[in-house]
């Protein structure tokens, strides 16, 4: 039996820069030139001050676990083979909160505020998915 494919993120005009960055192993975020707010998800105007003046910044890829949970029931059948797996919100050093997975770590070892770093998983020619792993050796 063929296992179902994992779903891929939809790439559109707003998110293209982010996925282009991921292809070269870099997390890229929009920073408002007026108020300095670094935002995620991508948007045309700043959600804080509504300015359209935007620059792109490269993230260090470092952050910490803000919150996390452990899936014991897969939402999509393609993820069943990975149960139990961790879905987390990672707070990047630059500010944005990213919904992602924590890998290379037992779920029971994960704590809020623990330092993590980005690691990219190639899912297709277009998509390098940013996941996170503990940023210190065990």
């Amino acid at each position: 039996m063929t296992l179902p494919e994992k779903p891929l993120p939809g790439i559109n005009a707003d998110t293209k820069f982010f996925w282009e960055g991921c292809k070269s192993q870099t997390l890229t975020f929009q920073k408002c030139e007026q108020c300095g707010y670094v935002r995620w998800p991508p948007s045309f105007i700043c959600p804080e001050c509504h300015s359209k003046r935007t620059e792109l910044i490269k993230s260090s890829g470092k952050g910490k676990v803000y919150s996390f949970i452990v899936y014991h029931r897969a939402f999509h059948p393609a993820f069943e083979r990975e149960l139990p797996y961790v879905v987390a919100i990672v707070e990047l050093a630059e500010g944005p909160h990213l919904l992602t997975n924590i890998i290379e770590c037992r779920p029971s070892d994960i704590k809020c505020d623990m330092p993590v770093e980005v690691v990219f998983e190639k899912r297709s020619e277009e998509v390098n998915l940013p996941l996170f792993r503990p940023s210190f050796p065990k």
Binding site: D14, P41, L99
Partner: peptide
């Protein structure tokens, strides 16, 4: 808006 990783 369609966010990046909604499937989970």
């Amino acid at each position: 808006p369609s966010h990046a990783m909604e499937a989970e």
